[in-house]
Amino acid sequence: MAEFLSMGGYASFVWTAYGTSAAALVWLAVSSRKQLKETNEAVEAARARRRGDS
């Protein structure tokens, strides 16, 4: 296990590369998803308001 983690002495480079990629891709996906949810709710609210008006 320790040998696997050490990546033949390149641990800092290999794991930083994977870590940065994972962090950036997760952040983009999560923030997109979150914004989508928020706007979904806002659209629903607007629709409900319009129904209420008429």
Partner: peptide, 9 residues
């Protein structure tokens, strides 16, 4: 060596 594994991302 092992650093080639960066290539896959």
């Amino acid at each position: 060596g092992e650093s080639v594994r960066v290539m896959y991302i």
